[in-house]
Amino acid sequence: MAETIDLKFVTRMKRLLSRAGSAEKLARLTGLSASIIGRYAEGKADPARKRLIAIAEASGSTVEWLATGNVLDGKAKTALKDVVIAVDKICQNENIVLDPSKKADLIIFIFEEMVEDLKTIEDLESKIVQLASFGR
Rank of each mutant, 00 (worst) to 15 (best):
M1V: 10
A2H: 03
A2L: 08
L7C: 04
K8Y: 08
F9E: 01
F9C: 05
F9H: 01
T11Q: 14
R12A: 12
R12Y: 08
R12H: 04
K14H: 04
K14L: 10
S18T: 14
R19V: 11
R19Q: 14
R19P: 00
G21V: 08
S22F: 11
L29Y: 02
G31Y: 10
G31F: 12
A34S: 15
A34I: 00
I37C: 03
G38N: 07
R39N: 13
R39E: 08
Y40C: 02
Y40T: 05
A41H: 09
A41F: 14
A41Q: 10
A41I: 13
A41K: 09
E42F: 03
G43V: 02
G43H: 03
K44C: 02
D46G: 07
R51M: 08
L52C: 10
I53A: 11
I55N: 03
I55R: 10
A56C: 05
A56Y: 11
G60H: 10
V63D: 07
W65L: 06
L66V: 13
L66Q: 07
A67E: 11
T68I: 03
V71R: 15
L72Y: 12
L72W: 09
D73S: 07
G74S: 14
T78P: 00
A79M: 13
A79N: 06
K81G: 07
V84I: 14
I85Q: 07
A86M: 03
I90T: 08
N93A: 07
E94R: 03
E94Q: 10
V97D: 00
K102L: 12
K102M: 06
K103V: 01
I108S: 08
E113W: 01
V115D: 08
D117Y: 07
D117R: 15
I121R: 13
I121Y: 01
I121G: 10
L124P: 03
L124T: 09
S126A: 04
K127D: 13
K127V: 04
I128W: 05
I128L: 04
V129K: 15
L131Q: 09
A132M: 01
S133A: 14
F134L: 11
F134E: 01
R136Y: 10
R136C: 09
